[in-house]
């Protein structure tokens, strides 16, 4: 089977400072990869390099496109990359405000990707938006409300709906539950689990929260100071950590 994403020796430097370096892995359809590390570990830099927001200094990020097979995203033309970013890829930001248009209604936010790929029937667009609101557990009576009137958790769920409406195969998430209340987090994580399974999504999730990866990720990469120090199945890395830093991370988590 062809991997959905092949990451080869990706590195990003900030002058002499290492953003991230020597990152390589393959991601298959339906797999969720978690990337954990503390602040400054390079996980967000890596995510941005993979998602095409930053150009890596070295390495390849090869995505198995529907039309042309495996293509290196780093050297892909910008129009093609932007098109991919609206269709086959999704990016869920930590702060919903970065991933939504706050002055556009919920329905408009969800419909935008559909309109961007050529949908021109208002009724259909609205119906699909309403359907997705239901799937992320937002009452469809709020379809015309602006996200500025939503709670943080609702904004985040709206962001997810906006991203998933075009049925992407790969979702990048940057601290998707950061800043949310614990009960809200639980609901969001559960929703994500369900959607990942239903839609057969692959995902790369960056987080500092080990509970999130335990719940959502099949595989885990631990980063420290720009390097990947350990990688493997999530439950194996968390239950049988090999690297000293991973052991430290796991033992630092407070039990409730």
């Amino acid at each position: 089977m062809t991997p959905l994403l092949q990451v080869k020796d990706v590195a990003k430097m900030y002058g002499v400072r290492i953003g991230c370096t020597d990152v390589s892995f393959d991601l298959y359809p339906g797999e969720v990869m978690g990337i954990v590390g503390e602040s400054g570990s390079g996980k967000s830099t890596l995510l941005n390099c993979l998602a095409g927001h930053l150009a890596p200094d070295r390495g390849e990020v090869i995505f198995d496109t529907r039309a042309d097979g495996p293509v290196d995203m780093v050297t892909m033309s910008e129009p093609a990359r932007r098109m991919l970013g609206r269709t086959d890829w999704a990016f869920v930001h930590q702060h919903a405000r970065d991933g939504l248009r706050m002055s556009v209604s919920a329905g408009g936010n969800i419909g935008e990707r559909l309109m961007a790929v050529g949908d021109r029937h208002y009724g259909d667009i609205r119906a699909r938006a309403a359907d997705w609101l239901g799937r992320v557990e937002i009452s469809d009576a709020r379809i015309d409300d602006r996200p500025s009137a939503f709670s943080g958790g609702m904004q985040q769920r709206l962001q997810i709906a906006r991203n998933l409406v075009t049925g992407p195969r790969l979702v990048f998430m940057d601290e998707p539950t950061g800043g949310l209340d614990v009960s809200v987090q639980a609901r969001l994580l559960d929703l994500l689990r369900g959607l990942v399974r239903e839609m057969g999504l692959s995902a790369i999730i960056v987080t500092h929260d080990l509970a999130v990866v335990r719940l959502l990720a099949d595989r885990l990469m631990v980063m420290k100071d720009g390097h990947v120090v350990e990688t493997g199945l999530t439950d194996q890395v968390l239950d049988d950590p090999q690297h000293g830093y991973t052991q430290l991370l796991v033992s630092s988590v407070l039990q409730v």
């Binding site: 932007r82 609206r86 556009v104 408009g108 309109m115 961007a116 208002y122 609205r126």
Partner: peptide, 14 residues
């Protein structure tokens, strides 16, 4: 990339 233009029209209709 003119999807946003139609978002404006969508908002009007809604």
């Amino acid at each position: 990339e003119y999807g946003l233009m139609h978002v404006k029209l969508y908002e009007d209709i809604s």
